[in-house]
Every structure is written in structure tokens, then in C-alpha cells.
Nucleic acid binder design. Structure first.
Lengths: 225, 225, 225, 225
DNA sequence: CATGAATGAGGGTTCATTCAT
DNA sequence: AATGAATGAACCCTCATTCAT
């Protein structure tokens, strides 16, 4: 049987993904991701997922062993994809000045969160026995922290930044504020001029980015122009 | 029958509460709150609640109509209690200087979140048909925004603050950062020196407060001492 | 909830039973007993049982906790009833001569097995983690062994029996032979003249009793006058 | 397709087997037999079998049509093998004296049962639509009965046996008692001195043989020595 | 006013089997 | 001739809720 033998062969999306998930599995994970984002893990039944994914109910157990293991896979899947994405991004800014790097990083993080926000923090609340999973996300956060720290130090060295706030605190503020905005749409939209739901999304993202840039650069004691 | 007639009678705890919830209901809500904080809404069964509250299973339906309606009540209950609490707090700082008021407000908010964090944001993810509920929380957030705005304006007027960041952005940063720290313990504890789980809680709270004070006062252009 | 609180109150059938099972439970057990006798434990679904017992599927879990625990209850129930029945029987022969006692015991055992045969030995084959259950049946068998032993000894003492075969071997032969006849109807009926299925049952019981009486008394070296 | 055309081809093990089962089928049956002996028919899944037999899950359906039909084949297979084995055995005693023949037959039957006990009687309990299968076993039992009858008659004729118990009753006692011992290990081991699980098996077999020899020869009125 | 028994719907999972290859 | 992916039915169990008392 598929799962028991842990045999996973075909791969197409990317070389990296291929090592872990088949196309069918990725399809299921994509669907599951969307539903879980909306209704939570316990609120999403395997029947919901299988219906939306146009597969048989049994397939979730078949492909992942159980619903909970599917969740673990989804987790890894998302971390994998995000990490991959980040390393691509990191390349694009590696030659810039610290202030530009910092600015781009903040914009990048907010950007990503607006796309995959549901995913951050949901493990903490819903899954049990998932220490190893959390570790993966933690490693990922630490990647950000290291990168931020690097930029801060460089900026201070080159004299463009005055203070050295803790990188983990910057990250906390950036991710935390963004997630709050995303998850409290009803609140934030009161302060964001917008015509419709779609334009709100764009304007909210712009506003939170501005806020965070202000915050972070203020903390860094950055003397603009 | 009880629910259908929406008959709610006795009241003792406080005049304010009394208008909405009986003692029994409040007892159930207190228990439910604790469990839901731990295991989420879907993860908490009415049997869990009734067992822990030493009441019959049927009572949740009996008193609130359904589990979901109980949740709505819990929501209102928490908003009511928090609002009440906040108005008490507001009194204690009403005569202070703006910088003190700002500092105390940040500390207060972080404090409350460490106690009742589960509650913020869970509606978005888990409950349906809850627009009216969200409104209550929104009103509450706006209360904060107004107060913050008031303090900012006063500080700018008296010359102690240089800039006028948006109050909603300050609140976003404060609540967002705090919730992130609470919900990503595994991450944040890497940067918080602590001996045990209990001491962590205290240290984490201290660190996030410090971070937020720095952030906010930097944004305000506050020239300390 | 019923099961979790282990609260069982009403009792009617007999004082003894009452301590353990409610009427509803006994009804379910009676139905389950019949079905399991026909199709085995794994072959009988809780739906089969609930349908036949005219109750909701959920009731099996509700009353017993799980299907497996229901099985355990059935086991105890049967042992309880059998033990009770046996002690009544034992009274009726307590003043007889050894040869009469032996004869009556054999007839009694065969009799009971024709009624409740399915029950003997099914635990061994189908249930796991049931050591304590087996113990109950074992104690029950030992009750027989002790009684048989007592009769043998008395018979030898009074000179009516010549040999002293082991009581456990007698019991083995009696129970084993009877169960074999019951469970291999297709075989035994070849040698039992009978008109229809009902008359067969009677004739088979008669034949196996005769066979066992001959065997046992031969082993005892009983010189029938 | 294979099954539907009832096409069974190669044969190697023995001429007799060859008529019915291919090597692959026999391999599957051997594995299935072992598992079913341990866990029962319903307790054994086709996956268990296919895994242990190192074949694809689909093969059971492929080779036998269904799990139930596989069971029927297993049944025939076992009867065939046993019958074959018995005819070999019968040869070895065909020239002996009746008392020796009787003794050897009893020992032989007990022996075989200790090896293939699971198989006797399980059809009654677990399989449906198996009248034809039972017939095969019945024929087999009748083979024993005829042989026993022959020996009894010969013994009576030669004067070594005094009585003429019914052969079917002897067989009933022999098989029944043995199966009871095997299936009620927990009971019988109380009376069998043994050091470990393995030695028990041997000692139990010895004890039941002794018991049966005593019983049968007592019934036959055999004057030993 | 409150209860405990009972319900039906739906939960995740396993099963024997089928089907395209 | 044989496989592995996929299926749908059935499994046991838990759920929130209802109802008679």
C-alpha cells in the first residue's frame, strides 16, 4: 500500500518538492490548506476536503495515513515552499545597501503573510504532538532573524543605522502586526479608505507596510535622506 | 421554554453583567472560556464543559440554545468584562502626563492579552454568522484607538511627542506583537533567558513590553529624559 | 453521561444481575449474544445488533463504552447467569448418591451447553486483552472440576466407583464432546435418526449424553448393578 | 480474466494438489492459514495476508475471486492435504493388531489437531454459504469413522475388545476433547505441570492423549496387559 | 427548573474489491 | 499475468441536541 511502503516516486512541480510529495498529494494539500485557513483544522472534515478536491474520502488516509498526518504534511509542505521562496528572494537583495535590504525584507514578509497568513500560528492552537513540526517553522523564523540581524549589523557598521534593536523583536513586530491586520479586517478597514473588498486588501497591505517601515526605521534610528 | 422566550432573570455579580447573564450562565461561561482557550472551539465538546462545570450536558443547549450560541454569549461576556475592566483602568491614569499614560496603556494592553489572549482573533477563524459579535469587539478596539489618539494628541500639544503616528497603527503593533509572542512561544523563548516555563511567561511579557515601548516612543519621537 | 459515571441503578430481573446490568443493557446483551453466536464477534457489527434490538446505533457505545467493552460485559453477564444457574442446580443434587450426582451433573452440563454453547471458547479465539475475562470462565470451570472431584472421591470412598480419573479430564471430555456435536451438526446428524431439525436437536442431545455417560462411568469403573 | 474463466494451470507439489491449486495459490493459502489460525477469518485482512505473502493486495481477489472464495479454497486445500496425510498414515498401521491400530489412530488424530486445530469448526461459525465445504469435511470425518468402526469390529471379532461403542461417538470424544484442551489453554494448564509455554504444549498433548486412550479403551472394555 | 436517556448525523478510518495499465 | 492506484461501502465512535419526565 502506498503509505505503508512510504514509496513516493513521480515529481514535477519542482525538484525540491518532488522529494516529498506527489502531484496528487500536493493537490490535496492545496485544497486542504484553503479549507483549513477558513474553518480551522477541527472545523474541516476529511469529507469536506475530499469533496472539494474531487477525490474519494478514503484518499486522505490512503495518501497521508490519517487526517492528522495530512496536517503534518501540509505543514512541511508550506514550510518547504516558503523557505524555497525566501531563498530566491534573498538572492535578489544580496547586493543592496542595508536600508534597502531592510525595506525590501519588510515588504517581502508582509507580502508573503498576506498570501499565506492562515498558516502562521495555527499549529500552536490546534495540533498536538507536533513539536517536530513547530521546529521546522522555528528554524524558518530563525532564518529571518539571522538575516535581519545581519542587515542591522551591517547598517550600524556603515553608520546608516544608529541603534541596534533585537532582530527577533523586529520580526515579532512585523509578523505580529501584519497577522493582526489580516485577522481583524473588520477593525482595520475602518481606517483604510477603500471602494471594495478587493481594493481594501491592497490598501490595507500598503498601510501596514508603511506603518512597519516607520516603526522599524524609527527603532533603527535611521536618518532618512 | 427557557431559551425560546429569551428569559434571563437573576443577576448578582455586577449590575452591568446582570442585564445579560445569570449566575449559572456565567459559571458555564467561565469554564467554557478556560477550556476553549486551551483546546479551541471545535476541540472543546459540550461534554467537556458540562463535566468540568459539574452540570448536565443538556444545560448548554438549555441555557444558551446551542453550543454556537453559547460561544456568542461567551464572546459578549468577555467583551463586557474587558470593557468594564478597561474603564476602571482608564480612571487610574486619567490625571497623568501623556508619556505616562501611553506607557501605562501599553503595559495594560499587553497585560490583558497575556491573560485573555485566546479570545482575540478566534472568532474570525472558528465561528460563522458572527458579524454582530465582531462589531462588539471592534467597538472595543475603537475605544482603545480613541484613547490612544487622545493621548497622542495631548502629547503633541504639550510638546512631549514629536510625531503623530496613527493610533490604529499603534494599537495594531501592540496587540499584534503581543499575540504573536504568546502564540509562538517556541520561537520567542529562544531569545528569552528563563529557568522554567513559569518564569518564561514573566520574562516574555517583560521583553515584549520593552520592545513595544521602544517602538511606540520611537514612533512618537519621544525624547526620553 | 451514563457510562462515564458508571452509575447503574434500576434492577428487576434478579437481585444478583441487578448489581451489574440494567434492563436495557440486558436486552442488548441478549440480542448481541444471539448474533455473535451465529456470526462471531468480528462478523457482527454494532449496526446488526442495534437494528435487531430496535435501538439506536449509538446506544452500544452509550451503554457499554465500546463494542469491545460490550463484549466484556456480555461475557460477565453470561458467566454470572451460568454460575447462578449452577448453584441452583447444585442444591437439587446435594443429597443424592455419587452415581446419581455424577449422572445428573453430566446431563446438566450437556443441557446447558446446548443452550449456551456458542459462548464457550469464543473469547479465546476472538478477543484480545481479555485475560481477566478468561479468568472468570476459568473460575467457573474450576467450580465444575471441584464438584466433579468431590463426587468422584465420594464414590470411590463408598466403593461405588473403582477408579479415580482426573476430574479435569472428565470435564474436558464432557464439554469437548458436547461442543463438537453442537458445532458439527452436519457430521453428527448422519448418525442420529431424526425427522426434522427440531427433533434432531433433541435426539443429538440424547445421544451425546448417552455416549458421555457410558464414557465417564466406564472410566470410573462403575459396575452398574 | 483469470478467475472468471476458472483457469488453473501449473502444478508441482503433488499430483493430487495439482488438480486444484497453482503454486502461487498454495503459497497464499499457506500464509492465510497461519494468519487465520491466529486471528480468525474476520480478524485477518487481505492486506495482512498479501503483506506476509509478499504479494500485491489485489492478488487475493485476482487468484480466488474474493476473500470468501479464498477461504473456501483454503478449506478444500486443508481437507485435501489432511486426507492425503491420513491415507499415508493409514498405510503404516494397516498390518497391526486392533488395539495398536486404535491407539495409533487416537494419537494420530490428537497430533493432527494440535497442528491444524484452528481449521476444525471454524466454518460453522464464520463462513456463510458453505454447505458444500462442510460436506468435504464431513466426508473426511466419515473416513475416520469408517476406519475406527473397522478397527472396533476387528477387535471385537478377535476378542480383544468387549464392547462395541459407536465409532462416531469415539471420534466425537477424541476430536472434541482435544479441541477443548487446545482452545481452553487457560483452563487446562492449571492441571498440567510445565515449565514454559513450549513445554506446556507437549505436556498438554501427552495428558489429553492419555485421557483419551483411557476413555476409549474403557469404553471398548479392553483388558490391558 | 432541571435532568438523564436517547437520538441521528457526521466524524475519521479500514476494508475488500476494481480498474487502467 | 500482474500491479498499484483508487474506490465506495461499511466500520465503530462521538457529537450536539432533543424529549419525556
Amino acid at each position: 500500500m502506498f503509505i505503508r511502503e512510504e514509496k513516493m516516486t513521480t515529481f514535477t512541480k519542482t525538484e525540491y518538492m518532488a522529494k516529498k510529495f506527489s502531484d496528487k498529494q500536493m493537490h490535496i494539500l492545496d485544497v486542504a490548506e484553503e479549507l483549513i485557513a477558513q474553518k480551522g483544522f477541527e472545523g474541516t472534515s476529511v469529507r469536506d476536503i475530499s469533496t472539494k478536491a474531487n477525490i474519494n474520502v478514503a484518499m486522505i488516509s490512503y495518501y497521508f495515513g490519517s487526517k492528522e498526518k495530512m496536517m503534518a504534511s501540509l505543514y512541511q509542505y508550506r514550510v518547504l515552499k516558503t523557505r524555497e521562496n525566501f531563498s530566491e528572494f534573498a538572492d535578489t537583495i544580496k547586493n543592496g545597501k542595508p536600508e534597502m535590504q531592510m525595506k525590501e525584507m519588510i515588504k517581502y514578509i508582509v507580502n508573503q503573510l498576506f498570501k499565506y497568513n492562515y498558516f502562521h500560528g495555527f499549529v500552536t492552537q490546534e495540533l498536538r504532538h507536533t513539536e517536530s513540526l513547530k521546529d521546522e517553522l522555528m528554524e524558518f523564523y530563525q532564518l529571518f532573524v539571522r538575516k535581519l540581524d545581519e542587515v542591522i549589523k551591517k547598517g550600524v557598521t556603515t553608520g546608516v543605522f544608529t541603534f541596534t534593536p533585537k532582530a527577533e523583536d523586529l520580526l515579532t513586530t512585523v509578523i505580529g502586526s501584519t497577522l493582526f491586520v489580516i485577522r481583524n479586517k473588520n477593525f482595520y478597514e475602518l481606517y483604510v479608505p477603500h471602494k471594495d473588498a478587493e481594493s481594501y486588501q491592497k490598501e490595507a497591505e500598503k498601510k501596514v507596510k508603511m506603518n512597519l517601515l516607520m516603526s522599524v526605521f524609527a527603532l533603527l534610528g535611521y536618518a532618512s535622506e
